[in-house]
Write a protein that binds this DNA or RNA. Structure first.
Length: 387
DNA sequence: CCAGACGTTGTT
DNA sequence: GTCTGG
DNA sequence: CCAGACGTTGTT
DNA sequence: GTCTGG
């Protein structure tokens, strides 16, 4: 998921982050306010191609985060918080998004984004970013809506995916990150083929995407500034770490599975692998030192939580299984398609629906079979055959 | 055919 | 605009 | 996404 | 808990 971000880049830097020259044409750039705490409803520079006669030109277009579909009734107040994300697994099945897939793909760039993790009763925000600080590029879709005053409002939504193994500890979903020129190019420019589509819309697995906790004050949308991304030093990260080591060592007696030393040393509150200095005795409070000396666990509660969050196989497979990307194949209506009924693709559904309607409609209509079929066939001629 | 909806989180 | 439900 | 409010009466 | 505002 991705509902808050840092974008303090200049418009031209956004263009550059997407692989374009700094001098690409910009539209409405004066609406953009760089911010460490961008929420849906605010403007961000978005990169997309604008088709001119027989040619296309890249533009940095300032749009509002939070999709307002073009068919939104005039006079209604636009709601940017309803569709600020689009699940990539179901984006083709959702009518609000599928219509944008062929011609309304765009890129959003930001230095980082925030995720909240429930830590008992508290919600702790974390800042995610590339280790070396270079901007992220997200896959996005945009649309244009005309309000009652006849003004055009451009909005976008960021695609999400299940999280990579690495990030799963923090959150089960993450934005689709395009990390190289080819992916970026493929998303924004080329005709998207099925395989390409699947290849792009998956979790970013690189370990150069890192995170650390930040001040809960940034939860307030009005809170802005570099403070948002200042690393919050946990008051006693050694506490959870020590108990993590204890309980891990304990459980290992009954667990023959081999273990990675890094999983010991990884404190989930940051993505960094901690050095020995981070869990030295000196880092312990007096209270904890006594407990350690007495051979007791400083904290019995927390470690279980931590371990179950990135070691639990049942949980892991549950999350993985929830990723059911079902993509219809490119083919005509007449083609036969042998597929298991349990894994019906969208096209299977459409085909059976057409079949059903063809029979039911022909009973109550004077229209010829072919015409009726044509009517429903339109639903198949979508996505990538349009342009 | 027409009418009506069209979304994401997370949590249970 | 496109899909689902009736 | 998170934060913050969440109501009624009557009077001005 | 649920709705509204940013």
């Amino acid at each position: 998921m991705c509902g808050r971000a840092r974008c303090t880049l200049a418009s031209h830097e956004v263009a550059q982050a997407c692989g374009f020259p700094a001098n690409v044409r910009s539209v409405d750039s004066e609406r953009y306010r760089p911010s460490y705490n961008v929420a849906p409803g605010s403007y961000l520079p978005v990169v997309h191609y604008e088709s001119k006669e027989s040619s296309k030109e890249p533009v940095v277009h300032c749009m509002k985060w939070g999709l307002v579909p073009s068919f939104t009734k005039k006079g209604t107040k636009p709601d940017h918080y309803r569709m600020f994300n689009a699940r990539s697994e179901s984006v083709r099945q959702k009518s609000s998004f599928s219509r944008l897939l062929s011609k309304h793909r765009c890129l959003v760039s930001a230095e980082g984004f925030y995720e909240w993790k429930k830590d008992g009763a508290k919600k702790q925000p974390y800042y995610l970013h590339f280790e070396d600080g270079h901007p992220l590029v997200f896959a996005a879709l945009y649309d244009c809506w005309e309000n009652s005053e006849g003004e055009s409002l451009y909005t976008f939504t960021i695609l999400t995916t299940r999280s990579s193994q690495h990030v799963e500890w923090l959150h089960d979903r993450m934005p689709v990150i395009l990390d190289n020129a080819e992916s970026i190019h493929a998303w924004i420019d080329q005709e998207l083929a099925e395989l390409e589509f699947q290849k792009l819309l998956r979790p970013y697995e690189g370990h150069d995407l890192v995170w650390y906790p930040v001040t809960p004050a940034m939860g307030k949308p009005s809170f802005d500034g570099p403070q948002c991304v200042e690393e919050l030093k946990p008051k006693s990260s050694s506490k959870s770490l020590m108990s993590q080591l204890f309980s891990k060592a304990k459980s290992e007696k009954s667990d023959s599975e081999s273990t990675d030393i890094h999983s010991f040393l990884r404190d989930g509150s940051t993505s960094k692998v901690l050095s020995s200095a981070d869990y030295s005795e000196a880092a312990l409070s007096e209270e904890e030192k006594k407990a350690v000396a007495a051979g007791m666990e400083p904290d019995e509660e927390k470690p279980k939580e931590v371990l179950s969050n990135h070691g639990d196989r049942e949980h892991d497979s549950k999350v993985r299984n929830s990723f059911g990307m079902q993509l219809p194949q490119k083919h005509s209506l007449g083609e036969s398609c042998a597929k298991s009924s349990s894994q019906d693709t969208k096209e299977d559904k459409v085909r059976s629906e057409i079949k059903r309607r063809k029979t039911t409609d022909s009973l109550k209509s004077t229209k010829g079979d072919d015409l009726i079929c044509k009517d429903h066939q339109k639903t198949l001629l979508t996505f990538f055959h349009k342009q």
